[in-house]
Nucleic acid binder design. Structure first.
Length: 493
RNA sequence: GCCCCCAUCGUCUAGCGGCCUAGGACACCGCCCUUUCACGGCGAAGGCACCGGUUCAAAUCCGGUUGGGGGUACCA
């Protein structure tokens, strides 16, 4: 076997979705593992639907996932160009070749005629295939059509006898009867080649050795194989990986929620989690390992372990995995990632002082095991930074609007103002003494303070929270809470 | 309609004829830890789609049924 060359060939008609990303990942891993090349090619022959914006989105998604391509749009390569729209002359040459060799012919049927043809066929319970009526057009008629200004299209003359076998690396031999195929279009009237034609010319010319793509392409493979052969190209290896489905088992799409990888990034997912999860969608290593580093994947990935059945995308597992990677990450690294988010939220200055950085890391350290998404750290950190608390009304009513809560807060407030150092060592005794005095559980002391200081009943340990918020602000908030509770009781009366 | 692919807990999967009274992970439930929430620890529940074969023996091989997915475009 020569050098391994694989490719990812998205059409820029939308963002990079998880299905495409997973396909790109498998290609990337396979290339890395075999010291081969990973090619990125943009299949933009659909003039109506392709957009530049989509190209950017796809590149952005790939970059986020760390799927670096060896040849492609940005840096080129010796088999370029890498946009199909810039390879028209190549397709033209090969189409001419097929016409010259008698394997392709002009067809002047109108869409209406074709429609009619299919309807009749269907009503007669026959396959709605093209009947090949233009296959034997005389040269005069052909010229006449051309003279009349009809552009026409090109159809491939398929072999209808025998069978075409796709030797799939994942599924084994898949046999298609050639009589199932009709003379399909290879050149459209808008002057562009069709997918099934362009993909073959490109993969052959780009010397792709293994075509790893979604299972939705399996049924089209026999057509492509016939073109490979008609053009005298060597047929590459194929590996059709299973589809990714939504929770309702239908093909994953926008209506299932987030499906573009950049959107996942924006929602706070880490590259490692995304890659790890995607890798496990349709592939597994053994019965024990679920966490894989990039290097691990490159080493352990194999097409033979790719499963044949479609996989349902499970956001819950992705979230769990994201949490795992957040927890595993060392604090400095996590800080670097969260920094821009916090700056954006106004928590930290563009160029924070060292003391601020240290405090931010301490806060983040407390939050680290409590978040599954990076974006959660914005909400869970706000009371360390913002002066104005957003009280959770339900919680306030339940915890603060109690006669005893006012007493507890008042007592603790006076103690906290007196204490030498605002640290756990000095703070803890205050709480335990209060607990004894009120003859209650420690939690009954802590919860009112927590709500007073954070506005909610969920936070890191209370001593850490107090220390990180600081004496002045903590005491002020407790004072505010007491006022608020008192006001509530006055109102009730 | 026709063609192709697929079928193990709710989900992702291990399993490639006896090691399976089917293993792991997520989710769910319970318990522990505890100062709330997480984290962590322990435990429970939960599956070989169905029907026939082949075999001493089948989740594993074969056939059928059912179900799901894909293709059948001048989309890719």
């Amino acid at each position: 076997m020569g050098q391994v060359r694989v490719r990812f060939a998205p059409s820029p008609t939308g963002y990079l979705h998880v299905g495409g990303a997973r396909t790109a990942l498998f290609n990337y891993l396979f290339a890395q593992q075999n010291k081969g090349k990973f090619v990125l090619r943009i299949e933009d022959t659909d003039l109506a639907r392709s957009t530049e914006q989509s190209v950017d989105g796809i590149l952005e998604g790939m970059t986020f996932l760390g799927l670096e391509w060896d040849e492609g749009p940005t840096q080129g390569g010796e088999h370029g160009p890498y946009f199909q729209s810039q390879r028209l002359d190549l397709y033209q040459q090969h189409a001419d070749q097929l016409v010259a060799s008698g394997r392709a012919y002009h067809c002047f049927c109108t869409p209406e005629e074709l429609d009619e043809m299919r309807k009749i066929a269907t009503s007669k319970k026959q396959d709605p295939k093209y009947d090949g009526r233009c296959r034997h057009l005389t040269e005069e008629k052909r010229q006449a059509h051309l003279q009349a200004g009809r552009k026409g299209i090109l159809r491939f003359k398929t072999h209808s006898d025998g069978a075409t076998v796709v030797n799939d690396l994942i599924r084994g031999k898949v046999t298609f009867e050639n009589k199932q195929l009709d003379d399909f279009v290879i050149w459209k009237s808008d002057g562009m080649p069709t997918y099934n034609f362009a993909v073959v010319v490109d993969d052959a010319l780009m010397q792709i050795s293994h075509i790893i793509r979604g299972e939705d392409h399996l049924s089209n493979t026999p057509k492509q194989i016939q073109i490979y052969k008609a053009l005298g190209f060597q047929v590459p290896e194929f590996a059709h990986i299973p589809m990714i489905l939504g929770p309702d088992k239908s093909r994953l799409s926008k209506r299932h929620g987030a499906t573009s990888v950049t959107q996942f990034r924006d929602e706070g997912y880490l590259r490692q989690a995304m890659v790890n999860y995607l890798a496990l969608l349709g592939w597994s290593y053994d019965d024990a390992q679920t966490l894989f580093t990039y290097d691990d994947l490159v080493e352990k990935f194999s097409l033979s372990k790719v499963s044949k059945n479609p996989a349902v995308f499970d956001i819950k597992k992705l979230q769990w995995m994201n949490g795992v990677y957040i927890r595993e990450m060392d604090l400095d690294h996590l800080y670097q990632i969260v920094l821009p988010l916090w700056q954006n939220a106004g928590f930290l200055a563009a160029d924070p002082k060292e003391s601020e950085v240290n405090r931010a890391k301490l806060i983040l350290g407390e939050l680290q095991s409590r978040g599954k998404l990076l974006t959660e750290f914005e909400e869970s950190a706000y009371y360390f930074y913002k002066d104005q608390l957003e009280y959770n009304e339900k919680v306030v009513r339940k915890v603060l609007y109690k006669e005893q809560a006012i007493e507890i807060l008042t007592l603790l407030l006076s103690q906290m103002l007196k204490v030498d150092d605002f640290t756990q060592t000095d703070l803890e005794p205050i709480f335990t003494e209060a607990q004894q005095k009120f003859e209650c559980k420690l939690g009954d002391i802590i919860q009112p303070i927590r709500v007073a200081v954070t506005g909610t009943n969920v936070s890191p340990g209370i001593y850490e929270v107090l220390m990180l918020i600081g004496r002045a602000k903590s005491c002020q908030r407790i004072k505010d809470a007491v006022e608020m509770a008192k006001a509530h009781f006055n109102e009730v009366k």
